[in-house]
Design a protein around this nucleic acid. Sequence first.
DNA 1: CATACTCTTGCAACGCGTTGCAATAAGCCG
DNA 2: CGGCTTATTGCAACGCGTTGCAAGAGTATG
Lengths: 129, 129
Amino acid sequence: MRWTPQRRLLLEVLDGTNGHVTGAELVDRLRAVDPATTPSTVYRTLRVLEEIGVVQHAHGRDGREEFHVRPAEAHGHLHCSSCGQSWEISPADAAATVQAFRDRLGFDIDLSHLSVGGTCATCREARTR
Amino acid sequence: MRWTPQRRLLLEVLDGTNGHVTGAELVDRLRAVDPATTPSTVYRTLRVLEEIGVVQHAHGRDGREEFHVRPAEAHGHLHCSSCGQSWEISPADAAATVQAFRDRLGFDIDLSHLSVGGTCATCREARTR
DNA sequence: CATACTCTTGCAACGCGTTGCAATAAGCCG
DNA sequence: CGGCTTATTGCAACGCGTTGCAAGAGTATG
Ligand SMILES: [Mn+2]
Ligand SMILES: [Mn+2]
Ligand SMILES: [Zn+2]
Ligand SMILES: [Zn+2]
């Protein structure tokens, strides 16, 4: 693996990011620093960074990839289709689900990639009220 | 809502489809019948059909939309990231998960839109052996 | 420091899907 | 039937991301 200016810059920008970020957002932020930034390089580098664990992607409500920087522990996301908000799923909240799928189907859920849509408590109450 | 030749044709093609299908696949099949088919019309019509319950989309492993024709009952999908296979999640297998998220977080999971990645039983055994 | 090896980049073209807008045509009503 | 209203279409442009390929540049080696 080679240490190039393009990779160095992406790592710097990622360092100044917390939470989640899409590829397009990163291209924008990189271009603010170096206008010569090329999308293909950025997306390829993101894949490399994901292989070595620096970032990890999941999918937003529209299916687009969102990158999480320096993932501390694997976690999924909840997306409310009514208000558009998102929340992280704590490992505790996911444990039962992971267990159930392993026991019943032998399927090992990849928590870091889990993205669940639905209606949040607030929106549901607002609707039934 | 107006009954147009384009919508009629899409419904016919959907009728000859079972399981899941992507928008691009549908455009291809439509063009085989009517080469003048326009993508924007197809995608817009799919959204209309989803509103009235004729199709329902979920997301494949890559996040792309896949449409399910005449959904009998809401169900999610499992995608194995190792072998690429997919399976439907029976409502029974999902019940515990739905219940857990409602009880713990007040979140109402949209089963029809649920897409879970991970490793299937076969692939996991092949790996550990 | 020069050389060579090969990983990485940039470019151009492509694929998929979305959007604004003007033209078209469904469906309603007299 | 013929005209009117407005939903729908087709087009062109765009946004996001991917890929093949040739040129460029890290890095190891002597
Ligand atoms: Mn969706
Ligand atoms: Mn993914
Ligand atoms: Zn909500
Ligand atoms: Zn598998």
